[in-house]
């Protein structure tokens, strides 16, 4: 292989004339983090609501929740990005469509929404599994004390369910950070897009993607450690997290 290695490339000025390649990668990283963060907030919120209603005694709410999960889980993320970005503005009334297309940072908002809804279906599945893994008796005990159903969820079921869900939620959080790279297809200049652009202008493909790889790994290892710390902090004595052997 006749490849000219040049690790000094990161300090060269990029075609935008203002930033070095390293700075453009870091700028891309902030877009990656912002996209993942806001999409995660959306995913947690909607995922929790949908997950909870799928465990209520109301058959219609359960069906609605199931339909939601199947819809967002069974369409590829890339297709969902395209649907939100290219198709939605064309099918809504023209004025709204034009307004949507004129938004600055439209690709960022679209990426947050697409990634948020896609991940919310997966979070909803975790929330449902977490609640169902609790003994049915916990719900009965809460209701028998006179708590209303929302109170039973808020004070009794969800605090334990979220603790049980922390390990799978960590995986979802790592996924959302990695999946944010799909947003490059709708023009968001996040980390992967910046690495590609660096490779196209400088031809230093190995350096560019080595840098992107290292940054993704560092972010995800940091997230993993933070979530482990959260698991330890919220561990319930004599129950999950306290000691692996005591797990139900």
């Amino acid at each position: 292989m006749n490849y000219h290695w040049n690790w000094g490339i990161f300090w060269d000025i990029s075609p935008d004339g203002a930033h070095s390649y390293l700075q453009t990668l870091l700028l891309g990283t902030t877009w990656t983090l912002a996209t993942a963060f806001f999409a995660w907030c959306l995913a947690l919120l909607f995922g929790s609501i949908i997950g909870v209603i799928r465990t209520t005694p109301n058959a219609w709410l359960v069906r609605l929740g199931n339909a939601y999960v199947e819809l967002f889980r069974n369409i590829p993320l890339l297709v969902q990005m395209f649907l939100w970005y290219f198709v939605l503005p064309e099918v809504v009334p023209q004025a709204i469509g034009t307004w949507l297309k004129q938004q600055p940072n439209a690709s960022f908002y679209t990426a947050v929404v697409a990634l948020g809804f896609y991940t919310s279906a997966r979070v909803a599945e975790q929330v449902r599994a977490g609640i169902l893994s609790l003994a049915q008796g916990q719900r009965l005990a809460a209701l028998a004390l006179g708590l209303t159903l929302p109170q039973a969820y808020g004070f009794v079921l969800l605090p334990m369910a979220y603790r049980i869900m922390l390990p799978p939620l960590t995986s979802e959080l790592l996924n959302i950070i990695k999946n944010s790279s799909v947003a490059l297809t709708i023009g968001l200049m996040e980390l992967t897009a910046r690495a590609r652009s660096m490779q196209e202008f400088s031809f230093q493909v190995f350096e560019a993607f080595t840098a992107a790889t290292v940054i993704y790994i560092v972010i995800n290892i940091a997230v993993t450690f933070a979530m482990r710390a959260l698991e330890r902090r919220t561990a319930v004595s004599g129950f999950i997290g306290a000691s692996p052997a005591a797990a139900h």
Binding site: A135, G137, L140, A141, A144, L145, F155, M160, V236, G238
Partner: peptide, 16 residues
């Protein structure tokens, strides 16, 4: 229900 106490086979204390 708040006026009727209930005790279960598996205790059902809230572990957290």
């Amino acid at each position: 229900r708040a006026r009727i106490g209930m005790v279960f086979q598996h205790f059902e204390l809230f572990p957290h």
